[in-house]
């Protein structure tokens, strides 16, 4: 074994397939350019130079077909709900959802209104909830890091019993 390693050319790394796949996934979390209300302003800010989500490999895509992550930023209304579902289903697997702000988490201060859905998790599965009204860009960055930690623990190569 040692002989084999010594005979290899330079720059060779050993890893497991799972780790390698996850490394690729958590380092390129492309998120959908999609915002519903005031939280969207903070989402844009989080993409700007101060918080700079790009440094985590997260950058926005203008189409769900190229996105891995949906950040639901803002108040979801019943009218928008079917569009949100459609966008989510247009994203290729594996896909993740961050619910950003009180409105997306539970309806927020509009939850008793006649038009507001009490949380996006009634419609699509959510991986990370970011609290706040609105959450600061730092909080959203923290949410992305939390999601990256989740992705690092994922296992794809399991025996199918």
């Amino acid at each position: 074994m040692r002989k084999m390693i010594n005979e290899m050319p330079g720059n060779v790394l050993f890893t497991t397939v799972d780790q390698f796949l996850n490394w690729g996934r958590f380092s390129s979390l492309w998120y959908l350019l999609f915002a519903l209300a005031c939280c969207g302003i903070e989402l844009m800010q989080a993409g700007g130079p101060r918080t700079d989500l790009d440094r985590f490999g997260a950058m926005f895509r203008a189409t769900p077909r190229q996105s891995d992550l949906m950040i639901v930023a803002g108040t979801l209304t019943y009218k928008m709900a079917s569009r949100l579902k459609l966008l989510y289903h247009q994203m290729p697997e594996p896909k993740y959802v961050i619910s950003m702000g009180s409105c997306a988490n539970c309806g927020g201060l509009f939850q008793l209104g006649y038009s507001v859905v009490e949380g996006v998790d009634l419609i699509i599965p959510v991986d990370v909830y970011v609290p706040g009204c609105p959450p600061r860009p730092e909080a959203l960055a923290e949410g992305i890091i939390k999601l990256q930690e989740l992705i690092k623990k994922e296992k794809y190569l399991v025996k199918d019993n």
Binding site: Y78, A81, L112, L122
Partner: peptide, 14 residues
């Protein structure tokens, strides 16, 4: 106004 129980499969509990 009486709020509907659900709309488009989404619960509308108030």
């Amino acid at each position: 106004y009486v709020f509907p129980e659900e709309y488009d499969g989404i619960p509308c509990h108030r």
